[in-house]
Design a binder for these strands. Structure first.
Lengths: 349, 349
DNA sequence: CTCCGAATTGCATACGAATGCAATACTGCC
DNA sequence: GGCAGTATTGCATTCGTATGCAATTCGGAG
């Protein structure tokens, strides 16, 4: 043990101000650059130096200021993640996974939560001001906004949506394919009249699912189709079912809901308000494969998104683009996983 | 219109480098400080100046660098929000609301998602490095970690947990009170044997709920109590119920689950695997009042957390502490809202 | 027209760390 | 022991914005 430098107040840990690299340098009797180098990975520093600096550092409770570092390195090590509240009830799960993926790579997540998918007004400005290294969004940006982001040379990955007329990276679940499977199974099992419950108008996911279902239905020669729309929530799921029955005059043979939660709403309404047996009297299917879809009171027939693989893919796609900005745009589509539940009568076993 | 400064390449928008306040200043023919002042709220700038600067600014696609600003003002305008994956299925909702609350106040959210509640190792270090202005956590920090944060003079608000032996701000739902209500109603309706399903061992919420329930049960003279534990998830809810029946020898009169999702699991297992009628043969209650609790296949009897008010309160509590660090610690407890569902036979109507 | 006070504006510096370059300390080898 | 070559270290500058202080301008009153 050596005596502390001349005027040391001997304060246990940081008391007055946050310690800076200069403070550490002074205490350790080295230069500021030395301190900086000790706290980096590939920098050259002797063992002795490293020890002296570290000792001084934790005596002062020093830790590098990521803000200052970001300023000089032009790298904030932050990515923006955008979600919208009503986009879909299952996004929270996606969000947690994404955050963990980024964390593993030493990248922090700056979260932006929108009320509705189209509330992207100020968000872009915020992201750019914070100089995020990349953007991962599960909400729709306008072409102008994408243009703005492009000009700032910030890589973007769209999650479950694809830009209209703008070349951009995306990771998505193939909604159309999933709907085709659902429809073909239902039609194959003899269902002739259909109800389609779509989601909020500004949801791309809902649009794709509805379109996928309708196209396949028409292709198979089905034209007894009634359409209503909700907001992806349970309550509107129930309301939609009632509305569907009213519009159609009687319950259709099958209902295709834009997501699981609305499908569950439909099932409850069908059973409770109309005394129908599901799937005896009517088949009801959803999409997503979220937790509640597995509850055995529903045991939904649905298409599960491979969330693990999708988030993994999205995170690494973005990180790759950050490290290598010249990579050309890429679209990755994952097939959904067909789940034969007990909420619909399907063709085979 | 005046001629552009001598060597102007006349690039439409930001092309090469991000424009800085100096670039704007040069183009507008003013000083850098003038630009800085125009982009602040309470700064003095003449109308003429403001216009010239703004014109130059959006010609260059300039936007202030929040990183640099943070460095000089010692304010990052970011708060850290910590959640853990398994803490509770209902947290995603909390998270979205919190983020919106902070956004409204011009504060950005840096998100940290833990695998389990006790994985707080590196998180504290990260938060301090990024110089967040405040911390809102729904995961447990150790006393040492709280100490570290304290030394850095960063205000903290705990969400639904309270520190052991460390004075700190918190916003929580009164779990004990809620459990007391559930228990007294059940006992009042004549239930004599109880099963208690607790959550993961490192969950404070689970601990409080279990303790609250057990204390009240004992106070009312009930001692036929069987305890098992799950992880807050649906699957373990089902397993727990089976385990409960096995340990007890027969189904108890009532089951108190530490959260709604496990309660739902119990209901499904009771009905499907044991052919029991809920609530005819057995009463099952949960806690949280999340979405699926309302699904009419379950219509859980539960205690709903006033999420709106809690998030609102937590956000403003933290923001107050940021603006005024000297505010003394405060604990706010919100009563849960009793929900008389159809999953339990209660005393009165 | 002159002078005073208030409002603007510019100058210079600070925030905290990273890094190119030059100086210095080591290492091994002959 | 001397020398070439490499590994450490320090110096000085940079990132982009905010702000105290001094200089300047402006407005109006006398």
């Amino acid at each position: 043990m050596k005596k502390p430098t001349k005027t040391d107040d001997n304060i246990t840990s940081a008391e007055k101000k946050r310690a800076t690299s200069y403070d550490v340098a002074a205490l350790a009797g080295v230069s500021q650059s030395a301190v900086s180098r000790v706290f980096q990975d590939g920098a050259s520093a002797s063992k002795a130096m490293r020890e002296r600096v570290m000792a001084a550092a934790d005596q002062l409770g020093y830790r590098p200021n990521a803000i200052a570092r970001g300023l000089i390195t032009q790298r904030s090590n932050m990515v923006a993640v955008v979600i919208s509240k009503l986009t879909n009830l299952y996004y929270p799960e996606v969000l947690v996974q994404l955050t963990q993926r980024f964390s593993e790579q030493g990248v922090r997540v700056l979260l932006f939560a929108l009320e509705r998918e189209s509330d992207t007004e100020t968000v872009v400005e915020q992201m750019l001001q914070y100089r995020v290294d990349g953007i991962l969004t599960a909400a729709m940006f306008s072409p102008e906004q994408l243009e703005t982001i492009d000009n700032a040379h910030i890589p973007v990955v769209l999650y479950n949506r694809t830009a209209s007329g703008h070349i951009v990276n995306s990771v998505r679940c193939d909604q159309e394919e999933g709907e085709r499977w659902l429809v073909s199974e239902l039609v194959g099992a003899g269902h002739l009249s259909f109800g389609v419950v779509e989601g909020p108008p500004d949801s791309v996911v809902s649009f794709e699912r509805k379109t996928g279902a309708l196209n396949e239905l028409r292709r198979l020669g089905i034209d007894d189709i009634t359409t209503v729309s909700g907001d992806f929530g349970y309550e509107t799921g129930r309301e939609c079912f009632a509305e569907l029955v009213e519009k159609h005059g009687s319950p259709p043979d099958a209902v295709i809901a834009a997501n699981d939660v609305m499908a569950i709403g439909c099932i409850d309404e069908a059973r409770e308000a109309f005394g129908l047996d599901v799937p005896g009297d009517i088949s009801i299917v959803g999409f997503d494969g979220v937790g509640p879809a597995r509850y055995s009171a529903y045991a939904l027939t649905t298409v599960r998104q491979p969330v693990q693989r999708m988030t993994q893919s999205a995170a690494s796609m973005l990180l790759e683009r950050i490290d290598n900005p010249e990579l050309s745009p890429e679209k990755r589509a994952f097939s959904g996983i067909p789940i034969r539940g007990r909420s619909a009568r399907l063709a085979d076993g």
